[in-house]
Design a protein around this nucleic acid. Structure first.
Lengths: 147, 147
DNA sequence: CCCAGGTTATCAAAGCTTTGATAACCATCA
DNA sequence: TGATGGTTATCAAAGCTTTGATAACCTGGG
């Protein structure tokens, strides 16, 4: 193979993300939500009445994936969907009271993880990590466009 | 919510990983492999005869997830599985010739992404990013244990 | 007015992933 | 020898994700 596995920075990023997601999933699970459901409710809390497709964009998933998540959330009464009065083709989605409660319970637990990361670094280190990740992101996005 | 979204470092990590995976998927797809299939073949190339469960550990997925991936790879003739002569309960998995060819074709394309990341940073920056990610990883793993 | 382009929702198929549970096998220790 | 513990494979159910294709709706330019 052209490149040694331990030189591939992508693996370090993936490992960090995987550990993070596993921890978040474990944290959120007792609150009765999956990570995608949590992400959807979180975005929904900040954008009441948003459409499913817009929500999908906010959560970085496809509209089809979001449809499944929303279906499950609606079945459990965490969200409500009603036709848009003017755009009959749009379904407005809103948090219900139980939905907001579930989100807050999950978020209380998820924030523990974020605080642990915050506590590991100095403010300078946090900024450095942010900046390096952002540059990595741009570099990958650039090469992806010209693929 | 207790913590502003733009202070959560987890989101930066997730974004970087998501962009990276999207790019890798786009790169590998024309070679006829998915990312999990590519990861499995890659690990397999370095560990001929490895068991399915061990392969799952190497790829950071559950044994059940790996079973599905291996089933698809076997159907397409990219791997061969045969009972272990002594441990009758173990299936030894090996790359076939077409499997190795597919892996190399996919890897040629995937390495382009890794090279782009490499080119974005100086050697010092690469080391710094690695170290920050590793510390983040430990911090998250630590808090996950005592959850 | 009409149509083209963009957005929205949805169906279908395929694949990946997880939790939970079951069964078989091997190695070690009492 | 027999029991315990660890590893392996596998079934089942549920959920997430993607690609591909279809249909309905709104907006703006011709």
């Amino acid at each position: 193979m052209g490149m040694p596995a331990d030189e591939r920075l992508g693996l370090d990023i993936k490992r960090a993300e995987q550990t993070l997601m596993a921890a978040k999933q474990a944290a959120i699970r007792p609150a009765g939500l999956t990570v995608p459901q949590y992400a959807a409710l979180f975005a929904l809390a900040g954008n009441p009445g948003i459409s499913g497709a817009a929500l999908a964009r906010a959560c970085l998933v496809t509209p089809q994936a979001m449809t499944v998540v929303l279906k499950n959330l609606e079945e459990r009464g965490f969200i409500e969907r009603s036709p848009h009065p003017w755009h009959r083709n749009v379904l407005e989605t809103r948090l219900t009271e139980p939905g907001r409660a579930a989100l807050e319970a999950a978020d209380d637990r998820a924030v523990v993880i974020e605080r642990a990361i915050e506590a590991e670094f100095t403010s300078d280190e946090r900024a450095a990590l942010r900046e390096l990740l952002a540059r990595c992101n741009s570099a990958v996005a650039r090469v992806a466009r010209e693929l």
